[in-house]
Amino acid sequence: MSNQESFEQLNDLNNMRYDVLREIGNIGAGNATTALSQLINSRVDMTVPKVDLLNFQELADVVGSAEDIVVGILFNLSGDIQGMMMFMMEYTAAHHLVNCLTGKEKENMEAFTEFDLSALKEIGNIISGAYLSALSTLINLNIKESIPYMSVDMAGAVLSVPAIAFGELGDKALLIQSEFNQTDKSVSGFFILIPTEESYGKIMSSLGVQVI
Protein backbone atom coordinates (compact mmCIF):
# COMPACT_ATOMS: atom_id res chain seq x y z
CA MET A 1 0.00 0.00 0.00
CA SER A 2 1.38 3.40 -0.89
CA ASN A 3 2.04 6.16 1.56
CA GLN A 4 -0.79 8.20 0.19
CA GLU A 5 -3.26 5.44 0.93
CA SER A 6 -2.02 5.07 4.48
CA PHE A 7 -2.47 8.82 4.92
CA GLU A 8 -5.99 8.54 3.56
CA GLN A 9 -7.00 5.74 5.86
CA LEU A 10 -7.60 8.67 8.15
CA ASN A 11 -10.80 9.24 6.22
CA ASP A 12 -12.26 6.63 8.48
CA LEU A 13 -13.31 8.74 11.43
CA ASN A 14 -13.53 5.88 13.88
CA ASN A 15 -9.93 5.17 13.34
CA MET A 16 -7.74 4.84 16.38
CA ARG A 17 -5.21 7.05 14.64
CA TYR A 18 -7.46 10.00 15.22
CA ASP A 19 -7.26 9.45 18.93
CA VAL A 20 -3.50 9.23 18.79
CA LEU A 21 -3.23 12.44 16.78
CA ARG A 22 -5.69 14.15 19.06
CA GLU A 23 -3.61 13.15 22.05
CA ILE A 24 -0.51 14.56 20.40
CA GLY A 25 -2.37 17.84 19.90
CA ASN A 26 -3.50 17.70 23.49
CA ILE A 27 -0.09 17.19 25.03
CA GLY A 28 1.64 19.68 22.76
CA ALA A 29 -0.93 22.40 23.16
CA GLY A 30 -1.24 21.71 26.89
CA ASN A 31 2.41 22.48 27.37
CA ALA A 32 2.23 25.51 25.08
CA THR A 33 -0.83 26.86 26.90
CA THR A 34 1.00 26.60 30.21
CA ALA A 35 3.91 28.55 28.73
CA LEU A 36 1.54 31.23 27.45
CA SER A 37 -0.28 31.39 30.74
CA GLN A 38 2.98 32.07 32.57
CA LEU A 39 4.02 34.61 29.97
CA ILE A 40 0.90 36.75 30.29
CA ASN A 41 0.29 35.83 33.91
CA SER A 42 -3.32 34.91 33.37
CA ARG A 43 -5.45 31.80 33.18
CA VAL A 44 -5.64 30.21 29.72
CA ASP A 45 -7.95 27.32 28.82
CA MET A 46 -7.68 25.00 25.89
CA THR A 47 -10.28 23.07 23.96
CA VAL A 48 -10.16 19.42 22.90
CA PRO A 49 -7.99 19.28 19.80
CA LYS A 50 -9.53 18.58 16.42
CA VAL A 51 -7.99 16.33 13.84
CA ASP A 52 -9.08 16.73 10.23
CA LEU A 53 -8.04 15.57 6.84
CA LEU A 54 -9.14 18.47 4.68
CA ASN A 55 -9.41 19.28 1.01
CA PHE A 56 -7.47 22.39 0.03
CA GLN A 57 -10.73 24.16 -0.72
CA GLU A 58 -11.79 23.72 2.92
CA LEU A 59 -8.50 24.62 4.52
CA ALA A 60 -8.97 28.37 4.77
CA ASP A 61 -12.35 27.91 6.43
CA VAL A 62 -10.63 26.52 9.51
CA VAL A 63 -10.29 30.02 10.93
CA GLY A 64 -13.48 31.52 9.55
CA SER A 65 -13.17 33.09 6.14
CA ALA A 66 -10.24 33.04 3.71
CA GLU A 67 -10.23 36.83 3.89
CA ASP A 68 -10.03 37.16 7.68
CA ILE A 69 -6.81 38.79 8.75
CA VAL A 70 -4.60 36.55 10.85
CA VAL A 71 -1.12 36.52 12.28
CA GLY A 72 0.70 33.35 11.27
CA ILE A 73 4.03 32.27 12.71
CA LEU A 74 5.60 29.43 10.83
CA PHE A 75 8.44 27.06 11.66
CA ASN A 76 10.11 24.53 9.43
CA LEU A 77 10.71 21.28 11.25
CA SER A 78 13.76 19.14 10.64
CA GLY A 79 15.56 16.33 12.40
CA ASP A 80 13.66 13.06 12.84
CA ILE A 81 10.33 14.73 12.15
CA GLN A 82 9.93 16.93 9.10
CA GLY A 83 7.18 19.28 8.11
CA MET A 84 5.85 22.58 9.35
CA MET A 85 4.32 23.96 12.47
CA MET A 86 2.14 27.01 12.40
CA PHE A 87 0.82 29.08 15.24
CA MET A 88 -2.04 31.26 14.11
CA MET A 89 -4.08 33.96 15.81
CA GLU A 90 -6.83 36.25 14.67
CA TYR A 91 -5.75 39.84 14.24
CA THR A 92 -7.67 41.19 17.25
CA ALA A 93 -6.48 38.33 19.46
CA ALA A 94 -2.88 39.12 18.51
CA HIS A 95 -3.49 42.74 19.49
CA HIS A 96 -4.87 41.72 22.85
CA LEU A 97 -1.88 39.52 23.47
CA VAL A 98 0.61 42.24 22.58
CA ASN A 99 -1.27 44.79 24.69
CA CYS A 100 -1.23 42.35 27.57
CA LEU A 101 2.54 41.94 27.31
CA THR A 102 3.55 45.51 26.66
CA GLY A 103 1.20 47.04 29.19
CA LYS A 104 -0.87 48.98 26.67
CA GLU A 105 -4.59 49.39 27.05
CA LYS A 106 -6.44 46.26 26.16
CA GLU A 107 -8.63 47.78 23.47
CA ASN A 108 -5.76 49.54 21.75
CA MET A 109 -5.99 48.60 18.05
CA GLU A 110 -3.30 50.80 16.53
CA ALA A 111 -1.24 49.22 13.79
CA PHE A 112 1.51 46.91 15.06
CA THR A 113 4.88 48.56 15.58
CA GLU A 114 8.14 46.79 14.77
CA PHE A 115 8.48 46.13 18.47
CA ASP A 116 5.00 44.56 18.66
CA LEU A 117 5.75 42.30 15.71
CA SER A 118 9.02 41.23 17.21
CA ALA A 119 7.26 40.46 20.51
CA LEU A 120 4.62 38.39 18.71
CA LYS A 121 7.29 36.42 16.92
CA GLU A 122 8.99 35.68 20.20
CA ILE A 123 5.71 34.60 21.80
CA GLY A 124 5.20 32.27 18.87
CA ASN A 125 8.69 30.97 19.34
CA ILE A 126 8.27 30.28 23.05
CA ILE A 127 4.92 28.56 22.89
CA SER A 128 5.63 26.59 19.73
CA GLY A 129 8.87 25.49 21.33
CA ALA A 130 6.87 24.27 24.33
CA TYR A 131 4.51 22.37 22.00
CA LEU A 132 7.31 20.72 20.08
CA SER A 133 9.40 19.81 23.10
CA ALA A 134 6.38 18.05 24.64
CA LEU A 135 5.81 16.20 21.37
CA SER A 136 9.47 15.33 21.06
CA THR A 137 9.52 13.86 24.59
CA LEU A 138 6.35 11.90 23.97
CA ILE A 139 7.50 10.21 20.78
CA ASN A 140 11.14 10.12 21.80
CA LEU A 141 12.33 11.58 18.50
CA ASN A 142 14.43 14.62 17.82
CA ILE A 143 12.61 17.65 16.37
CA LYS A 144 14.54 20.75 15.34
CA GLU A 145 12.64 23.93 14.68
CA SER A 146 13.78 26.77 12.45
CA ILE A 147 13.68 30.43 13.45
CA PRO A 148 10.12 31.84 13.42
CA TYR A 149 8.79 33.36 10.20
CA MET A 150 5.83 35.68 10.49
CA SER A 151 3.14 36.94 8.18
CA VAL A 152 0.16 39.19 8.91
CA ASP A 153 -2.32 38.75 6.08
CA MET A 154 -5.48 37.03 4.83
CA ALA A 155 -6.00 33.54 6.27
CA GLY A 156 -6.16 31.95 2.82
CA ALA A 157 -2.86 33.50 1.82
CA VAL A 158 -1.09 32.56 5.05
CA LEU A 159 -2.41 28.99 4.90
CA SER A 160 -1.38 28.63 1.25
CA VAL A 161 2.18 28.01 2.39
CA PRO A 162 1.53 24.81 4.39
CA ALA A 163 -1.13 23.83 1.83
CA ILE A 164 1.44 23.89 -0.94
CA ALA A 165 3.77 21.73 1.15
CA PHE A 166 0.96 19.18 1.37
CA GLY A 167 0.13 19.65 -2.29
CA GLU A 168 3.44 18.09 -3.25
CA LEU A 169 2.38 14.88 -1.50
CA GLY A 170 -1.32 14.56 -2.13
CA ASP A 171 -4.64 16.32 -2.33
CA LYS A 172 -5.41 16.66 1.34
CA ALA A 173 -3.89 18.35 4.35
CA LEU A 174 -3.68 16.71 7.74
CA LEU A 175 -4.50 19.22 10.42
CA ILE A 176 -3.97 18.75 14.11
CA GLN A 177 -5.58 21.82 15.46
CA SER A 178 -5.60 22.91 19.09
CA GLU A 179 -7.34 26.02 20.22
CA PHE A 180 -6.81 27.97 23.40
CA ASN A 181 -8.67 30.81 25.05
CA GLN A 182 -7.98 33.24 27.79
CA THR A 183 -10.79 33.23 30.33
CA ASP A 184 -12.57 36.22 28.79
CA LYS A 185 -11.95 34.87 25.24
CA SER A 186 -9.86 37.86 24.24
CA VAL A 187 -6.74 35.85 23.45
CA SER A 188 -7.24 32.76 21.35
CA GLY A 189 -5.33 30.97 18.67
CA PHE A 190 -4.58 27.75 16.82
CA PHE A 191 -1.67 25.42 16.53
CA ILE A 192 -1.43 23.57 13.28
CA LEU A 193 1.01 20.72 13.06
CA ILE A 194 1.80 19.62 9.55
CA PRO A 195 4.00 16.53 9.40
CA THR A 196 5.11 15.11 6.07
CA GLU A 197 3.69 11.68 5.31
CA GLU A 198 6.93 9.98 6.16
CA SER A 199 7.08 11.76 9.51
CA TYR A 200 3.45 10.97 10.14
CA GLY A 201 4.37 7.29 9.83
CA LYS A 202 7.28 7.78 12.23
CA ILE A 203 5.09 9.49 14.83
CA MET A 204 2.55 6.67 14.59
CA SER A 205 5.03 3.85 14.83
CA SER A 206 6.91 5.46 17.71
CA LEU A 207 3.60 5.40 19.62
CA GLY A 208 3.02 1.77 18.73
CA VAL A 209 0.36 2.32 16.08
CA GLN A 210 0.83 0.25 13.00
CA VAL A 211 0.69 2.13 9.72
CA ILE A 212 0.09 -0.35 6.95
Partner: peptide, 22 residues
Protein backbone atom coordinates in the same frame (compact mmCIF):
# COMPACT_ATOMS: atom_id res chain seq x y z
CA UNK B 1 -7.08 26.44 -3.90
CA UNK B 2 -6.49 23.82 -6.57
CA UNK B 3 -9.67 24.67 -8.43
CA UNK B 4 -10.81 26.05 -11.77
CA UNK B 5 -14.12 27.48 -13.02
CA UNK B 6 -15.49 29.50 -15.91
CA UNK B 7 -18.11 32.21 -16.00
CA UNK B 8 -19.92 34.40 -18.53
CA UNK B 9 -21.06 38.02 -18.40
CA UNK B 10 -22.88 39.43 -16.43
CA UNK B 11 -21.55 37.16 -13.66
CA UNK B 12 -18.16 37.69 -12.07
CA UNK B 13 -15.65 35.16 -10.82
CA UNK B 14 -13.47 35.42 -7.72
CA UNK B 15 -10.93 33.63 -5.60
CA UNK B 16 -10.17 34.66 -2.02
CA UNK B 17 -6.84 34.99 -0.27
CA UNK B 18 -4.30 34.09 -2.94
CA UNK B 19 -0.94 33.67 -1.26
CA UNK B 20 1.89 31.84 -2.96
CA UNK B 21 -0.69 30.33 -5.29
CA UNK B 22 -1.33 31.99 -8.64
Amino acid sequence: MADLKICCSPDAITTLGLGSCV
